[in-house]
Design a protein around this nucleic acid. Structure first.
Lengths: 192, 192
DNA sequence: TTAATTCTGGACAGATCAGTCCGGAATCGC
DNA sequence: GCGATTCCGGACTGATCTGTCCAGAATTAA
């Protein structure tokens, strides 16, 4: 009946994520998006609706993948606490390897704070998921005797989340992999 | 001879800092700046030259004050390590009291990364000053027996800087004062 | 072939942006 | 009062931005 879509929506969204995370929402023009996503103007509006809706879709997808990657690293490790270490080190390796480290989640928080309800809701959802995963991991670490039991688990999870954000900002500011790894190791030390 | 300036340049710059840190460089229009700074269009261009130059001036001033505030807290405390604690807690109290926590320094890093050489240089300068102050403080803490001597001081300083950035992002994302204080306490624990 | 759908490229409108310029009022020293 | 300087409000230009629209080519199924 009809000609099928030629471009891959997921690939195009990945390009949008890269651009938005480098320059923010306001700093990214639609024409720059069209070039990076390699689609025509009409295709963008037909497929994603709007620059804002595209941004929200990019943010949702980035956050989901980001949290999923961390959870994957957590469960892949031999013990609970080494899982946290794995997650940190994998994140650092990925950020440094990318050349221009940037995080759309942190970027969105910095650009909008809580002023944009929809953006804030997306951030809250992934933050909640991440916190939940970290808490179960830390409870397991305590049960395994890897972590001090006098540390409040929700606080520790918040601390790890803040450390991740700090690592991302440091990486974007230009910190090297060695520095970032040292920071991560020090953060883990506080749980023992 | 001439009519003197009516507005206070420092007050106007403070208003610009508030606006830029809430919405970033690209997200802040000149008209919004004029309204917030309560000066006319011509006065802005005569006094600050340019939107970009105004931004750079705001960033410089914000970073200087920010670092100066931390250094002040460091030295005001009875012992070196409690100085670090003071600095963290003072920062948290200030951020939460402001209602809409935001940091122009972190915002600039997120918005520009290392793509803008001038912005990056301003960030590097204050990061260097802060790191130096933290390192001397930590060396003093080690000498006073407050801190473990097997912790690498530059790494610990980088860790504290990253923690500060993490706290700022967490605060802007909506974390409460109690959570932030818990995070700060855990971070300090890793140095002991 | 035909009808339906998607593609590309570019034109277009309306809004907003940064930055310049002008006119007139206000405030100073002389 | 007078000249000098700064103020303000607003008009203005040229560029850029988002979003809409159109024409024609391409590709599919019936």
């Amino acid at each position: 009946m009809a000609r099928p879509k030629e471009f891959d929506g997921e690939v195009a969204l990945a390009a949008a994520i890269a651009l938005f995370s480098q320059h923010g929402f306001e700093g990214t023009s639609t024409e720059a998006l069209l070039r990076a996503m390699k689609i025509s103007r009409q295709s963008l509006y037909d497929t994603f609706g709007d620059k804002r809706q595209l941004y929200l879709a990019a943010l949702r997808r980035y956050n989901e993948e980001n949290v999923a990657g961390i959870v994957r690293a957590l469960t892949a490790a031999p013990t609970p606490l080494t899982g946290v270490e794995y997650a940190f080190m994998a994140f650092i390796a990925k950020a440094v390897a990318s050349g221009h480290p940037s995080c759309l989640g942190v970027s969105a928080v910095c650009e909008f704070g809580r002023a944009d309800a929809e953006v804030a809701a997306i951030g809250d959802a992934s933050a909640h998921t991440l916190a939940h995963a970290l808490e179960t991991q830390l409870i397991a670490a305590q049960a395994a005797g890897e972590m001090a039991t006098d540390v409040d688990v929700p606080t520790a999870a918040a601390f790890l989340g803040a450390t991740l954000a700090g690592l991302k900002v440091s990486a974007r500011a230009g910190a090297g992999a060695d520095t970032l790894r040292g920071v991560a190791r020090l953060a883990l030390k506080s749980l023992k």
